[in-house]
Simulated scan of single mutants.
Amino acid sequence: MDIRLFLLASEAGEASGFGLNSNILETNAINILILLGVLIYAGKGFLGKALSQRLETIESAIKDADKRKQVAIEQLADQQEKLAQAQAECDRLRQQAEVDAKAAGAAILATVDADIERLRESADQEIATEQERVLIQLRQRVAEQALAGVRAYFGRGLEDSVQRELVDRSISLLGSK
């Protein structure tokens, strides 16, 4: 609406006794008081009901949050207890593993020591057997060479008495070894 029409209507109303008051300060204070009175009277029930429902909702949410908090605290305590049990079991297993490792190490060392001793004995036996075999071969070669030397010497011709003496001496030398 145009402002000119508004002013015309307000001037026409002043002339008849009923009209619009154009004093802004007077009309605003009265209008605000009237409006507040109407709102308080009409909105009292509605606003009270809405606020009580909101209060119940908030209280319900708080109770629910408290319940969840309590459940969470209980679950935390259970999980902490399980963690402590798991750590204790871990420590026990670690200690047992260390004991088992030491026992296994000792058993392995004992087995290795026994194997080393057995290998030494076997090596000593093999060395003794090889030495015996070499000695026998050396004796055989020495005897063969001696016999070959004697045959060569006797092949040139010796008397029977000298030949018998040399054979007896060779036999006695072989028998003493």
Results as ranks from 00 to 15, higher is better:
A107I: 03
A88P: 03
D91L: 05
Q96V: 02
A143F: 01
I116M: 07
Q137I: 08
Q96S: 07
E98I: 07
V99H: 09
A143K: 04
I108A: 14
L119Y: 03
Q125G: 06
I108K: 14
R120F: 09
A110Q: 13
E144G: 04
I108F: 13
I127K: 14
S122I: 12
V150L: 04
L147M: 10
Q95W: 02
I136V: 06
A106Q: 15
A110V: 04
E132M: 10
A114V: 11
D124L: 11
V142Q: 09
A101H: 01
I116A: 09
A106K: 06
C90R: 12
R139T: 04
Q95K: 06
R139W: 10
R133Q: 03
Q87K: 14
L109P: 00
E98M: 04
D91Q: 11
T129P: 05
A114D: 08
D115V: 04
A97M: 00
A148F: 03
A114R: 12
D115R: 14
V142M: 07
A128V: 11
R118K: 15
D100M: 10
D124W: 04
E144F: 01
A152F: 07
E121F: 11
E126I: 10
D115N: 08
A101C: 09
Q140I: 07
A104S: 14
L135K: 06
A148T: 09
Q125P: 00
Q96R: 15
L93T: 01
D113G: 01
E144I: 02
Q95D: 09
R133A: 05
I108H: 10
E144C: 00
